[in-house]
Computed example of a mutant assay.
Amino acid sequence: MRFASLASGSKGNCLVAEVGGTRLLVDCGLNLRDTERRLARLNLMPSEIDGILVTHEHGDHACGVFDFAAAHGATVYLTHGTLGALGAEGKVVEGVRISIISSKDVFSVNCMEVRPFTVPHDAREPVQFVLSDGAARLGVLTDIGSPTAHVEQALSGCDALVLECNYDLEMLRGGAYPRWLKERIAGPLGHLDNRQSERLLGALDCSRLKHVICAHLSQQNNRPELARAALARAMGCEESWIGLAGQEEGFDWRSI
């Protein structure tokens, strides 16, 4: 099993995971041409993507989902609430194959097992995912306002983890965002700050972790070195061991 990021941040998110000949995107918050260009950087053809797992309807995660699926024949996997929200925004393209998923049910796409789990976030029916080839497990957690016991249970025992470190609390408080936006970001349905991510990681069973990557960093309210330092404290490792998912560069293939 291997995985890579096309982009991560408030301007667009997209991750790809591969097991055997099966390849799935987790979200597609980029326009069609940008997604195609970034896939080529990973030596992938768009036609090689079997499906798109959608975490929620926000534009930085879902704006390109149906355009890509319509152009390249990928199946879209999403909750009923997310589909309804995207439909209300006029984002659903007729003719695209859609599979409704539930946070209660594990399913498989060819040889890849997909385990959705619910998260507190200000969307209609948001989920995040653990992907597996039957042996190794990749956990993805990019948009969540507050850690829960359910989330800890879902992510414990993973072999790789892509974890949101959205903002530094002091930078957010002292920054230029309006008060309502600061409250939304830091609220229980917003995003995780570095310290919250550190505490969450410290609460997990990390005995199998081979990769930890900080993701969804705010370009205005965080710095990579702060996010890396927080996760390194939780892991008891060198900061350089913690990976980074960037807005422009994502990150290259990693294997587990």
Rank of each mutant, 00 (worst) to 15 (best):
E249V: 07
M1S: 09
L181N: 01
G250T: 07
F107M: 05
N222H: 02
L192W: 13
E249N: 15
K182Y: 00
S146T: 15
A160H: 01
E152G: 11
L138D: 11
G95M: 03
H58D: 15
E94V: 11
L201D: 04
T79K: 10
Q153M: 13
S132M: 07
A203V: 07
V114E: 08
Q128R: 03
L32H: 12
L6Q: 13
I213W: 11
T82D: 00
G243F: 15
E248G: 13
E248N: 10
C214T: 14
L200G: 13
P224G: 08
T55Q: 13
A88C: 05
C214K: 05
R38F: 12
V54M: 05
A215D: 09
S207W: 12
V162D: 00
A40C: 09
E152C: 12
L86D: 03
A154Q: 07
G243P: 04
I101V: 13
R208S: 14
M112K: 04
D168W: 01
V162K: 03
P116G: 04
L200A: 06
Y77D: 02
D27V: 08
G90H: 02
D105E: 15
G202T: 06
H150F: 06
P46F: 14
I185S: 06
L141G: 13
V96W: 07
L169K: 04
G243A: 00
E113D: 11
E57T: 03
L189W: 07
L172F: 04
A40M: 10
Q196V: 10
L226P: 15
V162P: 01
L226Q: 10
G145V: 02
L169Y: 02
A135G: 11
R223P: 07
K91E: 09
G250V: 09
P188E: 12
T148N: 01
S240I: 03
Q219S: 14
L30G: 13
A88S: 12
C214S: 10
E18W: 04
M235V: 01
N221D: 12
I213T: 11
M1L: 10
D133P: 12
T148Q: 09
G20Y: 13
N43L: 13
S99Y: 10
S103F: 07
L24A: 12
L189Q: 12
E238V: 00
D205W: 06
S240M: 04
L39P: 00
L209M: 15
L138G: 08
Q153S: 15
G190M: 01
P46R: 10
V212C: 04
N13I: 09
P188A: 07
V114W: 02
D122W: 12
V127F: 06
D67I: 05
G187Q: 02
E248P: 03
V19N: 10
